[in-house]
Amino acid sequence: MAALSTVAPQIVQAMQVATIVLGAPLVSGVISHVEARLQGRRGPRILQPYYDLAKLFRKETVVSEDSSWVFLVAPIIAFVCYLVVPLLIPVLTTYGLPLGYMGDILGGGFILALAGFSVALAGTESGAPYAQLGGSRAMTFGALVEPTILFVVFAVALITGTDLPYALAATVRSSTSEMVRPAHVLAALAFFLVVLVDTGRIPVETHTGTLEFGMIDEARTLEHSGAPLALLKWGAAMKQLILYTILINVFVAPWGLAGTGKLSSVMLAIPSLLGKAIVLGCVFAVIDNLFSKLRLFKITEFIASAFLLAVLAVLVYYAGGG
C-alpha cells in the first residue's frame, strides 16, 4: 500500500506544471472578481477566464498581411517558456524534483525574459503602432527592472550561499530569525514591487483599461486574435501565478508544501498554493484600489525605489550579517 500512496517524482513534477497551467485562470478570475467587488461592481464570474479562453480557441485567427511567421510562433514560444519555469521553482514540494535543478533563480528569470521578449517581438512584428509601442515600452521597463532582480538574486545568494529557489525557501522555513532578518525582509519587499511591475498592476499599468496610451504589457497583444491570443492571455495568467508562487513559496510563506512524495500531502499542497496565491492576489487588488496609475515617466521613480530596497538588502547583509 505504501508504494501506491507515494507518487513518482516525475509525476509530481508534472503536477507542478499542471497546477500552474490549470490554476492560473482561476487565480486571475478570483482577483478580478474581488477587484470588482471592492469597486462596488458585481464583477465577472470566478470561472470567467476559462470561458474566455475556450471562446478564443474557437474563434478564427486573423493575421495582418504585413506580418511574418514570427507573429504566430511567438505566442507558442512564450507559452512554452511559462511551462518550463514551474519545473524550476517550488510549486508543490519542498525538495527539488527531476529537472528541478537545471536552472537557478537567474535561469528562471532568463526564461521569463525570453517569453516577454518573444511577445514584444510579435507585437513589433504586427506593424500596428500601438502593439509596437507596447513592445518597446515593455522592453524599456523590463531593462530598468533587471538590476533590481539581479540585486534580489544577490541578496538571496548571500543569505543561502546558493541561488536555488529551493534553498532560500528551506532557509526561510528553518527559523523566525531568518524571516525577520533585514536582508531578507528588504529583498522580499523589493521582489514584491518587481511582481507589481511585471504583472502590470496599478502603480505601473491599468490592466482593465482600454486607453492605449497608458498601456505597456497589454498593448503588445492588441493585434492578436483567436488561438494565439488565447495562448497569450493564458500565458499572462500563468506568468502572474508563477511570480506569485516565487514570492509566496520562496520569500514570504514557504509553508504548506509537500515534504514527501506522498499523494495526500502533494494533493494538499495544490489548494494551499492556490489559496495563498488568491490571498496575495487580494492584496494586489486592494493596492489597485488604493493608488492611482503613475504617469509613464514617473515609473522610473517607482522602479528606483524597488532598486533601493534590493541594494539595501545586500548592503545590510554586508554590515554585520543582517
Binding site: L158, G161, S177, E178, V180, R181, P182, V316, G321, G322
Partner: peptide, 15 residues
Amino acid sequence: MAAAPSTYAGAADVV
C-alpha cells in the same frame, strides 16, 4: 554566508 542574527536583533535592525 553569515548566520542570521537572533530574532530580536533582526527585528531591531528592521526597525
